[in-house]
């Protein structure tokens, strides 16, 4: 959160082209193109099994795509992995951390792993303080609640001041105060020129803070644009909320029939 990034809005921080991931005969992600600019919060929405996590795993270098390329600030994740990874921070939906480290040790460890040389101690203290973890900083992560682990994971992923922050369902398990803090943090990061990719099911959050959203269904991007633009596009602008747009695009508007069938059976 220290470096200011200029060229906000024009600099392509994440550029994924033709991403495909196949597991045997099953295609989890089928030709996804994504572009996220500096200073932008991009919401990746989609029903369960749509391919969101697979897509972000490929974007962060955690999963090798069957086809397609990912560039982070112009660096190819496959070929220039080390340099590209220095620019990424990723917090998955289940924060699996090292349970036998304390929160402070974990954030230190992540800082050292990412090669943070200067002011690491101060930066760790700042982040722990910012996320309200200072009192628990010397407790083992194994004893933390889900929300505390989530916040510790965030500290670990922000310690190297990434240009691209990817979060998968970041508000799950967070109390309202922490969720508000997280939303403000993401807005601050975007204001300072960082790019944020947010995978979420909670459409209110996407509606509130995302500059653009992409809707994935069946491994394909079925819609992409600003929330307002999607509303306009869906049935000639008759849709009132992102939820309605989402349900129409992903076939979820048939849920009424399903509920009726369940009740009558």
């Amino acid at each position: 959160m220290n470096r200011e990034v200029t060229e906000t809005g024009t600099r392509e921080v994440l550029a994924a082209r033709g991403l495909v991931k196949q597991y045997g005969a099953f295609t989890a992600v089928d030709g996804v193109d994504l572009t996220v600019h500096a200073g932008e919060i991009f919401g990746l929405l989609g029903p369960n099994g749509a391919g969101k996590t697979t897509t972000v795993n490929m974007c962060t270098g955690l999963l090798r795509p069957t086809a397609g390329t990912v560039r982070i600030d112009g660096l190819d994740v496959e070929r220039e992995g080390r340099a590209a990874k220095r620019l990424i921070g990723y917090v998955p939906d289940e924060p699996y951390l090292y349970e036998k480290l304390t929160a402070r040790e974990f954030v230190h460890f992540m800082g050292e792993l990412y090669g943070v040389r200067s002011r690491l101690d101060e930066r760790v203290e700042e982040l722990l303080n910012y996320f309200g973890l200072l009192d628990a900083a010397d407790n083992l992560i194994g004893g933390f609640s889900h929300g505390m682990k989530q916040k510790t994971g965030l500290c670990g992923m922000l310690v190297h001041d990434p240009l691209l922050l990817v979060l998968d369902e970041p508000t799950v398990g967070l109390d309202p105060k922490s969720a508000r803090l997280l939303k403000n943090t993401l807005l601050t990061l975007a204001a300072r020129g960082r790019a944020v990719v947010l995978c979420t099911h909670i459409l209110e959050i996407a509606e509130a803070i995302c500059d653009r959203v992409g809707i994935l269904d069946g491994g394909r991007v079925v819609a992409e644009g600003t929330v307002e633009g999607l509303r306009q596009a869906a049935r000639g602008g008759s849709a009132e909320s992102l939820e309605e747009v989402f349900l129409r695009l992903t076939g979820g508007d048939e849920e009424g029939l399903v509920v009726e069938a369940l009740i009558s059976s």
Binding site: T60, G81, R82, Y96, Y98, L113
Partner: peptide
């Protein structure tokens, strides 16, 4: 490393 292995996968270390 278990399910925490992704942390090493994310890190810019050979």
């Amino acid at each position: 490393e278990g399910r925490s292995l992704y942390l090493l996968g994310l890190a810019p270390v050979r």
